[in-house]
Design a binder for these strands. Sequence first.
DNA 1: GTCTATAGATAGATAGAC
DNA 2: GTCTATCTATCTATAGAC
Lengths: 223, 223
Amino acid sequence: MKRPISTLAQGQRIAADSELLPPAVTPKGAKGKVLNAALQLFAQAGYGATSVRDICKAAKVQTTTLYSHFPSKEHVLAEIIGLGYAEHYKRIKDALAASADEPLARLAAVVRAHVISHCEYPMLAVVANTESHFLSPELAESVVVTLQQSETVLAEILLQCQEAGVFDVPDIYLALRAIGGMGMRVAFWYEPGCGMTPQHVADTYAEFALRLVGAGKPSPSLC
Amino acid sequence: MKRPISTLAQGQRIAADSELLPPAVTPKGAKGKVLNAALQLFAQAGYGATSVRDICKAAKVQTTTLYSHFPSKEHVLAEIIGLGYAEHYKRIKDALAASADEPLARLAAVVRAHVISHCEYPMLAVVANTESHFLSPELAESVVVTLQQSETVLAEILLQCQEAGVFDVPDIYLALRAIGGMGMRVAFWYEPGCGMTPQHVADTYAEFALRLVGAGKPSPSLC
DNA sequence: GTCTATAGATAGATAGAC
DNA sequence: GTCTATCTATCTATAGAC
């Protein structure tokens, strides 16, 4: 075991500190600066412990500028979570489109995309996964749909695998939870300087997922 | 797939709402009421979004009573997290003491204890896992030791398995992360009314863990 | 341990000039 | 979009009587 176990710096909730929002979907100007600053603070300190003043200070804008782009602090959170779920879902769909049309290959592709997006946008993943309960019902509704789509994709693939008889698993619901959960935790500990590429982590987790459902080859990686 | 996927109620971060602190370690009187109220609020809303007034209102005590038991709000969090890590570590040690002295049996025992403690004390697990970054270095130090002990136990068992040649796994560090992570997520979705006992979840996850490291039997549960 | 009262700081959000 | 100034509410924490 060459790598350290629990070594988060003081006051840090997640290890990575690099990538924020996907550049392609980041608004230009003050709005983008606010979103990236808020993302970083929400990820490390949490929504409830971050003030509008904190966000504006980090983004180097005035509080009035924030309120000219967003009706409230809650809308900032909603936009971040919406972008996060959208990016995650897009990566899963792209991976499936490039995958062979065979149940096990599709399962591996989804797990790989799930893990890579958690490695590359860990702050987005952490905020989406641990802060969404701060959203009011109206704002939550507009955002949770995409999350459910992503979960449905994985669930359907697991059902396809089961129907095709390609594996045997004691409880398919728990398999979904376990595979999803181990990928989600990646966002908390992965950082670019840890000595592993996102691809290595993703390949290994895909192998873990296949083994978990009883379909993995004992040793050589499938990917 | 009979059970629902993402169905957290509005404003809820975790599904369960029943068990709080282990009764055996809960102080009597006002202090215990404060700790249980704070645990519930920290788990659902987060430390930063919970005020001392919120805690005292839920505990039905005055704010001055809280300050007669704790020097600050941060000390309340520290005591909760300390109790959580201690309970988790105790369960792992107890499970190992009752387990056969054989690497795979020990691995299964640790995973089972890990999962069961996350089912039975989900709020404690969520607060310990997502709020500990609010602790100052001094308070964090006194608490993180127990967490590292628990992680070391799992790491050493995985190394024993590897040295004994009982399984083959591409990356033992990632196996540790994956097994730990899938168990930690259980705290967010498990609730007593979900139709599964903690033992069922624990048995299944132990099977998943053995498969993940290449040592699981294809179909019948080992536990 | 419990109460009332409050200090001193900071919260989210807004007004209105430029 | 940016600025200064500010409103009102709430925050953590304490003082001091009982």
